[in-house]
Design a protein around this nucleic acid. Sequence first.
DNA 1: GATAGGACTTCCAGCCACTGGAGGTGCAAG
DNA 2: CTTGCACCTCCAGTGGCTGGAAGTCCTATC
Lengths: 143, 143
Amino acid sequence: MRHMSIGDLSRLTGVKPTTIRWYEAEGWLPPPARTEGGHRSYGEAHLRRLGFIRHSRELGFSMADIRALLDLADRPRDDCSAAHAIATAQIVEIDARLRRLQALRSELERMTQGCEGGHVGECRIIETLADFAHGHCADPAHG
Amino acid sequence: MRHMSIGDLSRLTGVKPTTIRWYEAEGWLPPPARTEGGHRSYGEAHLRRLGFIRHSRELGFSMADIRALLDLADRPRDDCSAAHAIATAQIVEIDARLRRLQALRSELERMTQGCEGGHVGECRIIETLADFAHGHCADPAHG
DNA sequence: GATAGGACTTCCAGCCACTGGAGGTGCAAG
DNA sequence: CTTGCACCTCCAGTGGCTGGAAGTCCTATC
């Protein structure tokens, strides 16, 4: 597959054509060649770069991180400690999100288990949500 | 505290004044009374409703969910099974996000541990990110 | 009563990373 | 040659806020 349409590239990478065009407009992908009729025509280099971007996004990196990682990938002689730092920071952030989600999960669980059906007036779920003081103090900024 | 300024309400709930004004503009909070000079003046009902919204947001509910929960809270004679369903769906979604984050975390961990420093050319992190096939098949849509 | 300066007001643009629709053109299969 | 999908560009919208500009009000101090 020497030359690919945007649809081909989309199927190969799982990135939607609209998103691919957006990556190009924003400078994440270089503008590809065009057919006589004006359709985009991609090569292997585009496939690799788009794959890199997609995989990085799947791992939760921001576009700013990806910019840095792509820059690194383009300079293979550089030291890779910067890549290490970016990846490690990402792990730290994911750990924080995991902890937060786990805390949310257990509060939700407590909430639903407290509710034994019946009318909204006695529903523990609604009660818990309305318990503003609790919500306020559960704020990570408070502990 | 019979009547509160937007700043008082903000301090009590931890919601920024700009956000409170936005909630009002979007219909999540009813427009409060005004002082002669045009400043917003809130009562207990506003405090309760804003607390409910904030606590729900902290638990990860979307504004659409919150709309439904607020509607329920306003009709205490109704059956609360709808609240139960919304909360349960939220737990299911959080579980999915937890699994996904855990998978990401372990891939990131493998990635960084594979890297032993040195040049970007041999960096496992960059290599892994560039490994588009891997990324593609890790897509939840594919398994 | 004057004044300083913070809290408040409105309006509007921007954030991130896309997504989707409208309205039109290219291209490949049958 | 026709059908009909894929592609093109342009632009507006998503969610849930956030921040800036430019101006007004309120309160504490002198």
